[in-house]
Design a binder for these strands. Sequence first.
DNA 1: CTCGAAGACTTTAGCACTAAACTTAGAAGG
DNA 2: CCTTCTAAGTTTAGTGCTAAAGTCTTCGAG
Lengths: 185, 185
Amino acid sequence: MSESTEEPGPSEPSLDEQIAAYQREFRDLDPQVEQVVSALGRLNRRMNVAYGRQVAALGISNAEWEVLKTLVLSGAPYRLGPGELAKRLGLTPAAMTHRIDRMAGEGLVTRDRDENNRVRVIVELTDEGRTKWLEAMRMASDFEEDLLQDLSGDERGVLGELLVRLLRRVEHAQPDAGGRLTDLD
Amino acid sequence: MSESTEEPGPSEPSLDEQIAAYQREFRDLDPQVEQVVSALGRLNRRMNVAYGRQVAALGISNAEWEVLKTLVLSGAPYRLGPGELAKRLGLTPAAMTHRIDRMAGEGLVTRDRDENNRVRVIVELTDEGRTKWLEAMRMASDFEEDLLQDLSGDERGVLGELLVRLLRRVEHAQPDAGGRLTDLD
DNA sequence: CTCGAAGACTTTAGCACTAAACTTAGAAGG
DNA sequence: CCTTCTAAGTTTAGTGCTAAAGTCTTCGAG
């Protein structure tokens, strides 16, 4: 399951067949719950494959695009330290070091020591990096618009609201509220 | 936006802050679309972290659990070749070879040559593997039930239906229907 | 002022994956 | 038969990640 992080994919049985098979093997399964969860997982995997293909056309990887997005989201002047980037991306600092190496080599970011505190490093988006981000963003938002094309405005609103409620349940799961979700991450 | 299969994570701004920041940097963004897409991505990442923790308590990895699920879904006698497994999991055959090595070493599956066609290999779930699958399945379905706890039956149905419609759009995107989605995977 | 401790990266070792080359069994043609 | 082709797995080389150890600056206590 993945970025996340899991990333299976292409050739699986249809969703309905899969749910039916699970019910045969596991009687206690609620098909409605399973439909939501399985559709969520599959949808995400397919979308990630699609994003990867799109940004690859711009000569960057999905991983690099994530870094560009994080820097832009931090707002002008688009600077963050490697540690902060790692935390926001859910990576180890070690992995960040190497990603930044690559991206600095490609001219997407610069990496400099902070003159006021020479133990800190500042990663800053270059103009080229910002341009790549904008191009990727345009492709992504076209793709997302396409994806939701069959849904009415009302349906989009309902879907967004339901997803946000699930997200809230996962993110700040209340202690003492039935418990199992309390220690998620 | 990412996933999985990209796999970022833990410490990000709140969803609302993130959407507001994107709107500042990219005027053309539809906040409703962005809410759906971002919530989907985040939800999935958090869920994958949670699944990973749960199955780790059983002594297996998320990757191993995916293999167990695939074998069980294939139905009795729970046998598939490495190539077929790789296809369903979206991995290369090379990666399957190593996963099967590990899992055979742990007693979760057996790996044997097909006597009728000695170029084929048959991976078969052991009783121990089936037991692990069942334990993981129980944990997962409890977790999923918990996750959806705040949604009424109707809301679950609506959510499932909307997700399935999105999934259909991604999976068999019609040619000649506006196009961009036609070559997804 | 100097020593010790903490913080912020970087480096090293090891693992899991992909892409591409290789191996071997069975199938097809002459 | 014997050659060639194809299919199914495995092996090799190289990438990107994590965990843990290492380096270097800064800060605080004596």
